[in-house]
Design a protein around this nucleic acid. Structure first.
Length: 468
RNA sequence: GGCGACGUGGUGAAGUGGUUCAACACGGCGGUCUGCAAAACCGCUAUUCACCGGUUCGAAUCCGGUCGUCGCCUCCA
């Protein structure tokens, strides 16, 4: 069994062979913290999350680094508008990002490095580029990468450097560039902008250099996997490759993974076009975080995804089915010999699931195995053909697979205050065949967020999710 | 203008040459179970994979063309 992933640079499916056997190093382009993160951003983060979770489920060690861009034009503009330092604005939105990430059950990255904490590493990298003749300084003190010095430029994005259309808006301080296509490594200080005094002069970093500096710092000059949204292919990742490999002379990244866009009303969801849905708005609006997570991960990452209320509703319904199946398994009691087919199902399901994820993260196919498992479990519950221990084994498998998907309810879900008394009272009412009281208590429990269902094993409950 | 991706049922969406190739989920219809409800289970819901032509014993899957949708070439996950 081999994990294979679609690499953007080669355009081919590559078997995952970590540079250090058994240890995979992953870098993901994270948020720019100048405002609330939208669901499109999180599609990109969550696909990396699923990748990391899957590799760990396979038993591999993974070091996952996700950068935080805390200095750029938009942050500076936002901070100036509020009259606060950029650090204050960045801290505020980084905190919000962490809340969103936790709600969506994104794995905590091993390192969440901030650009402003890595100025020395960026400076060192720029010095190496200057020494190697790959960068030059302009009259105002800015430093640019010389694209003409790097013949491989354009390989990732499949763009011919000669054909690059030059943007109409050229900033005044960039007129001094040798070539309009050259990109900024270091920007000379300007009034109203933060600036650092360094060995290469005063100023602030360009956008791309931070990812090269931080990934090298935390993962080494060559590492296994780099992820991001497709819109980062050019120029961001193209520039990262050029500046990194020009500085080190080593291959930068083994496998480039890019996820397709989320679409809203048929068009790409992007801050610049205004058609965005923010995670915090959905959560505040009562959308189930688990349904949102499922909606964002259930479509293959290289496939465009239409985000809508309907897709959330469908995800919510799918979550309900999983919850109900899990609750039914946990409530199941039958004193009988074990069902010999259960062990077979457990092994086959795990194998199919891992194979699906190994196949370029085919989450849809992986989910299909989970739902097949739920149906098999429900069948055995319905005809009472398995033992209590069999049900326990199936719950354990669901929990195991959910270490990758992370959509099942919390293991230690606690009953709201007073609910257990109501459940006991309802149980007594049912024994007395007092149906009006039983129905009244069922409604009362639902008001507390506890859904009760009656079965041969007595009543069983599960926590109702908020409406999606 | 250059480059690239995609087009599967009522909906979302797997599948990329042949043993269930049309998975899985949502929705709908019928049935079983049940004090009621819910959940669940069973059956039905695409003889067909944008359209046309070709390759092949055989294609949703490969090739060519047509139409359509989207993305990148500029900040952007």
């Amino acid at each position: 069994m081999t994990t294979s992933l679609h690499d953007t640079l080669s355009g081919a499916r590559l078997a995952l062979e970590p540079l250090e056997p058994g240890h995979v190093r992953v870098y993901s382009c994270g948020p720019t913290v100048y405002g609330p993160t939208h669901v499109g951003n999180f599609r990109s983060f969550l696909f990396a999350d699923v990748l990391v979770r899957h590799l760990r489920h396979l038993g591999l060690r993974v070091t996952w680094v996700m950068n935080v861009t805390d200095v750029d034009d938009k942050i500076i503009r936002g901070a100036n508008a509020e009259g606060v330092p950029i650090g204050e604005l960045a801290d505020r939105w980084l905190a919000r990002f962490r809340l969103d990430a936790a709600a969506l059950r994104m794995t905590e990255p091993d390192v969440l490095p901030r650009a402003t904490d890595h100025i020395p590493q960026m400076v060192t990298l720029i010095e190496r580029l200057l020494e190697g003749g790959h960068a030059y300084r302009t009259d105002d003190g800015s430093i640019f990468f010389r694209i003409a010095s790097w013949p491989a430029y354009g390989r990732l994005a499949k763009l011919d450097p000669e054909q690059l259309r030059v943007g109409e808006r050229v900033e005044a301080d960039e007129y001094a560039k040798d070539d309009v296509r050259d990109f900024a490594l270091w920007k000379a200080p300007k009034p109203g902008e933060p600036s650092w005094d360094t060995a290469i002069g005063s100023g602030r970093p360009g956008w791309h250099i931070e990812c090269s500096a931080m990934s090298m710092r935390h993962l080494g000059e060559s590492f296994d996997i780099h992820t991001g949204g497709v819109d980062l292919v050019f120029p961001h990742h193209e520039d990262e490759i050029a500046q990194s490999e020009a500085a080190t002379g080593k291959p930068f990244v083994r496998t480039w993974l890019h996820c397709a866009h989320l679409r809203l009303d048929g068009a790409k969801m992007a801050k610049s076009s205004g058609n965005i849905t923010r995670v915090v708005e959905l959560l505040d609006g009562g959308v189930s975080p688990r349904a949102l997570r499922l909606a964002l991960i259930s479509v293959h990452y290289r496939q465009g995804l239409d985000f809508s209320d309907a897709s959330l509703d469908a995800a919510r319904a799918a979550i309900d089915r999983l919850d109900a199946g899990l609750a039914a398994l946990r409530a199941y009691r039958e004193d009988r010999p074990d069902d010999p087919t259960v062990g077979t199902i457990v092994r086959a399901t795990r194998e199919r699931f891992d194979a699906a994820l190994d196949d370029d993260l085919n989450v849809s196919a992986g989910l299909a195995t989970v739902f097949d498992l739920v149906r098999e479990a429900n069948r055995r519950i319905a005809d009472r053909s398995m033992s209590t221990d069999d049900a326990v084994a199936l719950v354990a498998l669901l929990r195991e697979l959910d270490t990758v998907l992370a959509v099942l309810p919390e293991e230690a879900a606690a009953l709201p205050d007073g609910a257990s008394d109501l459940l006991a009272a309802r149980d007594a009412a049912r024994t007395a065949r007092d149906w009006p009281e039983s129905d009244r208590l069922r409604r009362a429990l639902l008001d507390l967020g506890v859904a009760v269902e009656d079965t041969r094993d007595g009543q069983r409950w599960r926590l109702a999710e908020p409406v999606a």
